[in-house]
Amino acid sequence: MSYELVGISVLWLFLYGYLIVASIDFGAGFFAFYAKVTKKDHVINQLIARYLSPVWEVTNVFFVFFFVGIVGFFPDTAYYYGTAMLVPASFAIILLAIRGSFYAFENYGSKQSTLYTFLYGASGLFIPASLSVALTISEGGFITEANGNVSLNYMDLFTSPLSWSIVALSIVSILFISATFLTFYAARAQDWPALKLVRTFALFWSTPTIIAALTTFIVLSQHNERHYENMLNLWWVFGLSVGFFLIAIWLLYQQKRYGLAFISVMLQFLFAFFGYGVGQYPYLLDPYILIHEGATHPSMGIALIAAFIGGLLLLIPSLILLFKLFLFDAAYVKGKK
């Protein structure tokens, strides 16, 4: 495998990681707000706080890892995406900033405030919406380059069914992933009232998820024939994805093996995400950036991979420790520590 393929695979994997951990976080923020409005906060907010408090900063680093990595491996992305994304990415930054800091202000600070909870919950839905613009742009047709000026055609973007279906898909996926995780977490904590509530959330959001996924697929066929064809050739990957989705739903209905249900959801998105990504190969930005042409110098590529391996050797034991202390420590999860 060439170094640029290793690079993009690793980055894609981390983006997937961000997708999962951030979804849990963003969705949980929304549910916390929803519960507060419907006066059910006493049921689930304790649970949410116990999970989120130790890990929210780690979630953010996943994102930073991705964008630093992609500019490192593919400096051309800085030029095209950087110029085109100034406005949407700035909005995402501001929302992320509000979200992260308000979380800290509320949780580590002293007073609870419905406004903070609202901002926290709402930002969690808008961030994916603004970040998903990058995915939409990558399909091509929204960026023009004329005498060295890259610009984004906002009209096209806002009137494109593709961008709206991607936005819708990102929002409902977040709620689905998050609810499934919380179901699992509540089961571990043996918190039955919370479990009951979040399980209904999970079941509720499963249908929109699959509908949005299908819609996006169809809209993509109108927009980027090549990508769509490639994805059709990878039909078995998407088949697996749907299979895992069904397993997850079945387990949730049967009210058992919630851990397995969450793993199935993770696999569902893993396959869909990789099917989507592989289908986009060889482009990073249709038609401007090709994976092989846009890559950095080989010496830098190798150095980055070496740094990555070194970094993993450091991180994996630390992450295991974190999970052991907080996620898999039954006493902590139950609130006894």
Partner: peptide, 30 residues
């Protein structure tokens, strides 16, 4: 990247290693 795209495109080739390693430092700290 948003404000200095040409800088990052050129410098990214040479200096992305420490930026990348910095992320691991953040990870570790976080």
């Amino acid at each position: 990247s948003l404000i200095w795209p040409n800088f990052m495109q050129v410098a990214g080739n040479v200096i992305s290693l420490p930026l990348f390693m910095e992320v691991f430092a953040f990870f570790f700290e976080a």
